[in-house]
């Protein structure tokens, strides 16, 4: 996947609210939400695998799906020129989002 031309040059952990850079901020925000959901799904899956409630075949399929999802997410981050830290929004006293 090609990289988006100079789409993002944001400060890590901060979503840009500059009206002229709305597209950049939006891409960052959407990917942040997707990453948050992906991590929640991953944690839930880990719990189920560790509790032994899945068969070997189910575990294999779930792991394969999560692998693909993680790869896709990596591609999206590269396309928009974002790093892991860009998606980790600082929530002040609550700590980081991810």
């Amino acid at each position: 996947m090609e990289k988006a031309p100079e789409l993002l040059s944001s400060t890590p952990g901060k979503v840009s609210l500059d009206p002229e850079k709305a597209q950049e901020g939006l891409a960052q925000l959407v990917l942040t939400v997707i990453e948050l959901l992906r991590e929640l799904v991953e944690r839930q899956a880990m719990r189920r695998v560790e509790s032994g409630s899945l068969t070997d075949e189910e575990t294999e399929r779930l792991g394969e799906a999560l692998y693909n999802l993680e790869e896709k997410m990596q591609e999206m981050k590269e396309y928009f020129g974002l790093t892991d830290e860009d998606l980790n929004i600082d929530l002040g006293p609550l700590g980081n989002l991810l």
Partner: peptide
């Protein structure tokens, strides 16, 4: 196998 690898790596 690839799927199990994912969980083991995590």
């Amino acid at each position: 196998p690839r799927g199990r690898q994912y969980f083991a790596l995590k």
